[in-house]
Design a protein around this nucleic acid. Sequence first.
DNA 1: CTGAATCCCCGCGGATACTG
DNA 2: CAGTATCCGCGGGGATTCAG
Lengths: 120, 120
Amino acid sequence: MTVSLQVMRAQQDGIFTDGCPSRVVLDHVTSKWGVLVLAALADGTLRWGELRREVDGISEKMLASTLKTFEADGLVQRTAYPEVPPRVDYRLTPRGRDLAEAMSPLMTWVAAHADAIVNG
Amino acid sequence: MTVSLQVMRAQQDGIFTDGCPSRVVLDHVTSKWGVLVLAALADGTLRWGELRREVDGISEKMLASTLKTFEADGLVQRTAYPEVPPRVDYRLTPRGRDLAEAMSPLMTWVAAHADAIVNG
DNA sequence: CTGAATCCCCGCGGATACTG
DNA sequence: CAGTATCCGCGGGGATTCAG
């Protein structure tokens, strides 16, 4: 069953209105690289370099900014090891894993139907 | 169960790589206003003016461009009635409804956890 | 009422170079 | 290896005007 804006608003007043918390979070998640970074981290811990390679095409700047946003949101946990050479890894928090699960149907759907949409 | 990029790539080679169809479609859907427009149309037909009010904060320019993209993608169907004053309405195609269903868990999750993320 | 067209600004995001 | 700093272009997005 599909949930529409109207239905959600009947349950929760003012949800997804301009500037409200749900819009802020939605913007973070649906930011240009948001879903891809979350999906990359969905089944385990990754280092910075692995993440860069996994999320094909992302720039260092956007990876850093996306990770910072998610860290501030409590969706991603960063761990730095005091080694030389430096090693840092990223993984989803429980909340992040929960979100990734909620995103899963969308990703699966897109993967399954993208060719039909783009080609025709 | 959550599906990660790695898992999807094990099933479908080169999925969600730079410039591939799945990335194009994902960009359309997760565009700034994409999910909100789709969610607004999720449980029925809406006229242009209703859509504008429903998707709080969207400009006419972005509404038009978002709708055109989705129409070209076969996700939204536009119907114009030859009346005065003019009346146009938009509704999801079967494919669009399918997508809206896949987005539903994400929207629900965001609605439920946004406050905790922004405040807490 | 439903747009299309135009102008314009601002900031997202890419490219590159540099650092601990 | 894991970032930060800087520059800059382009397109998102607002405001306004016009049309059918």
